[in-house]
């Protein structure tokens, strides 16, 4: 899947450039709060419960320095992607023990039959392997330059 296609599921309202939380629960809560504020989605507790269960299955910080909290829930009607960043880093139980600085949170509805969100996850993970890109994303001044960096070849 094309990165531009994946980015259609996010928006400037779903970009949190400076997370304040430094622990996993706090960071998830801050992202869910941002999701509720930036969309028509309600029911934050349902989304939190799903994300917390997903982290119990295994940390979604698959790095390097990046986390992909994800899952399906009845609380959303369509795939929605939240982007968040932390200069200080969040303790997200990553396998390498390092802090997580960048998050792509993918929330999909249960009836996502074509596994669109897994394809989006795969495209993001593939794209983010580029170390120079990760530096540009951390430095990007706003949503637009973040997305432009993502789309650049």
């Amino acid at each position: 899947m094309d990165i531009a296609e994946v980015l259609k599921h996010t928006s400037p309202e779903l970009f949190l450039p400076n997370l304040t939380a430094t622990d996993k629960q706090g960071a998830l809560a801050e992202m869910v709060e941002g999701l509720i504020a930036g969309t028509q989605i309600s029911k934050p507790e349902t989304i939190m419960q799903m994300l917390t269960s997903r982290e119990a299955l295994g940390s979604t910080a698959v790095g390097p320095g990046i986390g992909f909290p994800h899952g399906r829930t009845l609380a959303v009607q369509r795939l929605t992607i939240m982007i968040a960043r932390s200069a200080e880093g969040v303790d997200f139980d990553s396998e390498d023990g390092n802090k997580t600085h960048l998050f792509f949170m993918l929330i999909a509805p249960p009836q996502d039959s074509g596994h669109q969100y897994i394809k989006s996850l795969a495209a993001l993970i593939d794209r983010i392997q580029d170390g120079d890109l990760r530096d540009s994303l951390m430095a990007a001044e706003n949503y637009e330059s973040f997305c432009n960096a993502m789309k650049e070849d």
């Binding site: 349902t46 269960s53 899952g71 399906r72 829930t73 009845l74 609380a75 596994h115 996850l121």
Partner: peptide, 20 residues
């Protein structure tokens, strides 16, 4: 609702686990 979300996650781990 929480139960269904959990069942969905357990099924997904079984069905798309290898892919993930």
């Amino acid at each position: 609702v929480a139960l269904q979300d959990l069942d969905e996650m357990i099924n997904e781990t079984a069905n798309q686990g290898t892919e993930l």
